[in-house]
């Protein structure tokens, strides 16, 4: 007969059911559910925004073009230039869509009706990471050749000779399997955990202030409301940081393909 246990007897914590959506409608053999609709919406927003900003560029920017230029210059100066140097401009057409797709997709978590971060389904980050991975291979083979790429990726210079027997398998697994995997999982796990956390606090608030109001539970409910607000603000920060990190690692991958010297 412990008090917290009795207090929360009827409370149902949200679980993996948050991430499973019933199909809204079917197109041929494909079932279309909410994440895909949101994904398409994000793509339309990103394309539409940059179309509005840069369809008719003017020397003195006005309206959307102002915002678009700030966004472009942020990605170029913070992500493109440090990693790709003078090749940055060429690769911006990949980095800009990746950054803004990931960021707006994450931001869907706090948009009132949507309220679902697109990247909390592993498929979306996995496809993005796969795209970057294939780009890495293509660029690497073009610039360094197939065996040159393998050699540069798996054989760090200045090691004692016998050590290479052990080093080569470790570096091979690390570069070609683990890093693309963690690239996708880092984004997925952050969005997944953040969504569960917000949902948990919101459910606590709803349960103790609305469904089952008790004098003892009232404080818990108020705490739930406060924590929901705090965690939402924190999530806004985390979403931007994760989009930044994802694009940063993408830029690093491309630069590892472009430049042979580590």
């Amino acid at each position: 007969m412990s008090a917290p246990h009795v207090l929360a007897k009827d409370f149902q914590a949200p679980g993996l059911g948050l991430f499973e959506w019933k199909p809204l409608f079917h197109i041929g053999p494909f079932a279309v559910a909410k994440p895909i609709v949101l994904c398409l919406l994000v793509a339309i927003i990103v394309i539409g925004f940059f179309w509005a900003a840069f369809a008719k560029p003017q020397l003195v920017p006005r309206g959307f073009q102002n915002v678009g230029e700030v966004a472009y210059m942020f990605v170029r100066d913070e992500i493109g230039r440090p990693f790709l140097g003078k090749d940055a401009e060429r690769w911006m057409r990949l980095l800009i869509p990746v950054f803004f797709f990931v960021w707006i997709g994450n931001l869907m978590s706090v948009v009132p009706v949507a309220q679902f971060p697109v990247n909390s389904r592993i498929a979306f980050p996995a496809v993005l990471a796969l795209l970057i991975y294939l780009t890495f291979w293509a660029v690497g083979i073009k610039n360094q050749g197939f065996f040159g790429l393998l050699k540069n990726a798996t054989m760090p210079p200045d090691l004692p000779k016998p050590l290479y027997l052990i080093v080569i398998p470790i570096e091979f697994v690390s570069t070609f399997f683990i890093r693309p995997f963690t690239h996708a999982v880092r984004l997925f796990a952050n969005m997944f955990a953040g969504h569960i956390l917000i949902a948990l606090f919101a459910t606590v608030a709803f349960h103790f202030l609305w469904e089952k109001v008790t004098p003892l539970g009232f404080g818990v409910g108020v705490l739930g409301v406060v924590l929901t607000i705090v965690m939402t603000a924190f999530e806004l920060f985390i979403q931007a940081v994760q989009a930044y990190v994802f694009t940063l690692l993408a830029a690093f991958y491309i630069s590892a393909g472009l430049y042979s010297d580590h």
């Binding site: 230039r81 440090p82 990693f83 790709l84 140097g85 003078k86 090749d87 060429r90 660029v139 073009k142 610039n143 360094q144 690390s174 570069t175 683990i178 890093r179 963690t182 940063l248 690692l249 690093f252 630069s255 590892a256 472009l258 430049y259 042979s260 010297d261 580590h262």
Partner: peptide, 25 residues
């Protein structure tokens, strides 16, 4: 694609970011 094995500038920062993501991997 002009990368013929030369590093761009600010290679220190780049090296550090690379190492931070590569060491746990």
């Amino acid at each position: 694609m002009t990368g013929n094995g030369r590093l761009p500038d600010e290679s220190q920062d780049r090296e550090f970011a690379n190492a931070v993501s590569a060491a746990p991997a």
